[in-house]
Amino acid sequence: MNKKVTKIFLEILRYTIIVFGAFWMILPFFWLFSASLMTPQELLSDTPRWLPERPQWGNYLQVLKRVPIFTYYKNSVIVATSVTVLVILTSSMAGFAFAKLRFRGRRILFSFVLSTMMFPVFIFLIPVYYLMKLFGWLNSYLSLIVPFAVSGYGIFLLRQFVMTIPDELLDSARLDGAKEFRIYSTIILPLIKPALATLAILTFIGQWNSFLWPLIVTSNAQKLITLPVGISRLSLAFSTTETQHLILTALVYQVVPMVILFLYLQRYYVKGFVLSGFSNL
């Protein structure tokens, strides 16, 4: 009986913490939607407003009129999807190699991969721009995609997850004569789906919101402008009051696809993967 009371108490505590935290987490997200329906005056008001007096649905139409948002969508989707696919592919291959294959120079190479994450992005801008010019890619999607095709973060993440797969499982496959590539594609990849989904979400969002590099590259290739760069064109030099409400509305256009993507990839968490079957191998 006593045990049951403790259990109920713990459950109440659990949900209290979850709900309390959730409130703080959703606040700005909620405000963004609410603010996208406000007038400029409401945004200027001194006391923070959480709801518009009368929702200005017209803001959404106005954004459509002012900027070619569907062209931006197209460009952002092409870039973010390509990068995500490339990152998933290169990271899982390298992650598998680092976690499960033995070869000379493995540790040094892995340290090298880690070190690629350790330089501030600003020093890459000039040399990488030069490479893009050299390859003649400045007017193509390639300049937005290729420089992000490999991610040290992704390699490290997937290496950590592949490591948790029991060696015995792979060895039994090797005894069957499975080649390394088949091990990679038929055993490793299915087993690390939650990690792949995580990496996909994080990579996609990173690219979807990426600003500085696309801005620099697309300034002389306006047909390639991506969503965040396009939205930034709504703002003025110093004071953004006139267009602030439109910027916030445009940001809703930017956020919604990511919400959908997240909810879609959630199913990989819900199912998850249960290793139990192998624990007694």
């Binding site: 801008l125 000039i126 721009y129 030069y130 893009m132 010019k133 400045l138 500085l212 801005l215 620099i216 300034s219 002389n220 306006q222 930034s232 064109r233 703002s235 030099a237 110093f238």
Partner: peptide, 23 residues
Amino acid sequence: IEIQSVPFDDYLKRILISHTSGV
């Protein structure tokens, strides 16, 4: 004439970076 507009905050940076590559 092609107009290339970049917001003020990143304007100089953009000029510098492309300039080093001769763009």
